[in-house]
Amino acid sequence: MKAKPALAPPGARLPDRTVLLLLLAPALVYFAVYHLWPIAGMVMAFQDYRIVGPSRFAGLKHFRTLFSSPAFLDVLRNTLIISSMKIILFFPLPIVFALMVNELRSMFLRKFVQATAYLPHFLSWVVIAGVWISFLSPGTGGANQLRGVFGLPPVDYMTSKGHIRWVLFASETWRSMGWDSIIYLAALMRISPSLYESADMDGASPLQKMRYVTLPELVPTMVTVFILNLGFFLNAGFDQVFNMMNDSVISVIDILDTYVYRIGLLNMQYSFSTAASLFKGLIGLVLILSTHAASKRVTGKGLW
């Protein structure tokens, strides 16, 4: 053959290691630019950032300002309250939902209930906020129409400090109860039918079967889900709060991430905002590493 050397014959090709590195390269470039570089950039939390010229070292100044600022402490409290509602109060709901779905005998009903309950998980928080703002509207919303049926006066939920956290809880439940039940449904499917058969032979009632067979089998899944959620405790749901917030309720639902956004991008306090991010990131890191360890110890499975 008189093939030019550049056109390699079928047998010869780039060395395997080169091929593998080339396959990995685009993802590496992405990680470097969008993750590692900004993580390195967080050093600005210890500096006074200047757009032009070198930034000056500022030590812990921004952290001292942060922790002595009443606004930040309010934000921290809101974050903890909203997160607790979403993690602790919400926790049993997907389990109960899965147990109920598991009792359905009609396949059609089962599919229908699942298909509708999973749907909101795929809608954006902008859409969900639109749906809820409309549903809760004091004039024409469905919620107040229902209140009217019971003779109750209308409530403007979206601007009521007393209600808005429950609006967050309810809309989170609306969005996630179905979807989060999938992991429990999958666990229920794995329970061996022989366990139920022997319970039947012992004359167990349906409630006893629930108490002594089903629930114990679900415990490992519950533990995994719970500690995984703890790892994201300081998140509290940026997109949700960001789209449901308004001036009337900002004092009770402003969370860490919305605070970082506001002081950083709207007030342009780059270094101060990054100090708040770094604080959140470090707590988050500790939480994730310890839940990873806890999960490994309790269930034998970690996060990665």
Partner: peptide, 17 residues
């Protein structure tokens, strides 16, 4: 990969990048 998973870059540093 695990580092990328557990370390969340701040909003502002990402914006500046």
């Amino acid at each position: 990969v695990v580092t990328v998973m557990v370390l969340e870059p701040g909003l502002i540093p990402e914006y500046l990048v």
